[in-house]
């Protein structure tokens, strides 16, 4: 397993470079113009000069090379500098966003807290609710609990957040006035009061997002459990006189985890991608909003950096999932 992991890690380097190349070419090919957001009152020759100032006059391979250099050399140097007070990165240009003309990584670091608070928390909540629901639903198939769980999770999944988000705002912010409809990204949690405020401003986006996660994970959990509950080994285990809880929680759940692990592993990178629509509705302004604004504004350095970081996470998470398969089911071998 260790050699496999090591081999996969090595292999992921050319994979990621190739992914970076494909993403760059895709962005190159896609219609879009950083000047598209500028008012029409700015004349075309001024826009042309602005494009040149952004470096868009250079051919694509130079810009791609520059991005690679900045991402893999300048940025790490800059971090070393700020950590140890050295000056490797002096005078070298970091990756700069077209829209804000500021270093891309600074903005990402600024956005990370609210994205983790909201999207990350919704994922934790969603999975924490989904696993028991999936297990109980499968164990008591067609019980009232199962029926209600199915009904709510499927409705929850098929109602898009652009509707459910606005619905909860209209109910809880406009009608009842209980919760704020606009997320305050500058809010600092320092004591109990501020923590309560943080909870109040988080609860709606977290719930809207968690509904989607819960629906998805619980459906896979339930289906997979059902497959396993009918297997011979379950009968054997019961026949051996093991208690129901051991049979279900230890044997069946463990054997049913493979699709669930896959779904969760696929979902984790998505946390860092943020939740575009939900972030926009509640004005959380996390990474999702950053990415969509960058896409709309054809902010290639920003899009490129965020999507590449996501690609790294995707490759890593899928590697972890593959390793976990082997842990969950030792019969799965890669060597």
């Amino acid at each position: 397993m260790l050699t496999y992991t090591f081999r996969r890690l090595l292999l992921s380097i050319p994979t990621l470079l190739f992914i970076a190349f494909v993403i760059f070419m895709l962005l190159e090919l896609a219609p879009g113009d950083p000047m598209g957001q500028m008012p029409l009152t700015i004349p075309d020759e001024v826009k042309q000069r602005m494009r040149e100032a952004l470096g868009l006059g250079e051919p694509w391979y130079i810009r791609f090379g520059l991005w690679l250099y900045q991402f893999f050399v300048v940025e790490p140097q800059y971090w070393i500098d700020s950590a140890f007070g050295t000056n490797f990165a002096d005078g070298k240009q970091r990756i700069i966003s077209f829209q804000s003309r500021s270093p891309v990584f600074d903005t990402i670091a600024q956005r990370l807290p609210q994205t983790l608070w909201v999207v990350g928390m919704s994922y934790v909540v969603g999975v924490a609710i989904a696993l028991p629901i999936g297990i109980i639903s499968a164990y008591r198939q067609y019980s009232v609990f199962d029926q209600a769980g199915t009904f709510i999770s499927m409705i929850g999944f098929s109602v898009p957040p652009f509707f459910s988000g606005v619905l909860v705002i209209v109910i809880f912010s406009v009608q009842l006035g209980w919760l704020p409809s606009i997320y305050d990204t500058t809010h600092q949690v320092v004591d109990w009061e501020t923590f309560k405020f943080q909870l109040r401003q988080m609860i709606m986006p977290v719930m809207v997002l968690a509904l989607q996660t819960t629906a998805q994970v619980s459906r896979y959990m339930r289906a997979s459990m059902l497959d396993n509950l009918g297997q011979d080994y379950v009968r054997t285990a019961r026949a051996k006189g093991m208690s129901e809880s051991v049979v279900v929680l230890k044997h069946v759940v463990r054997n049913s985890m493979i699709p669930v692990v896959t779904v969760i592993a696929l979902g984790l990178p998505a946390i860092f991608g943020g939740a575009i629509i939900t972030e926009q509705i509640f004005k959380v302004n996390g990474l999702g909003q950053l990415l969509i604004l960058a896409l709309q504004g054809a902010d290639i350095p920003m899009v490129m950096t965020i999507t590449f970081l996501l690609a790294v996470l995707i490759v890593l998470m899928n590697l972890i999932a593959d390793v976990l398969y082997g842990v969950l089911d030792p019969r799965i071998r890669y060597d």
Binding site: L54, P103, Q110, N285
Partner: peptide, 25 residues
């Protein structure tokens, strides 16, 4: 474009002064 600090917190003659600027937020 390198002058991020200046571009994010210009000194002006206007009624207000920037204390915190978070781009696109």
């Amino acid at each position: 474009p390198e002058c991020t600090d200046e571009n994010f917190a210009p000194i002006g003659t206007g009624p207000f002064v920037v204390t915190d600027f978070r781009t696109n937020d």
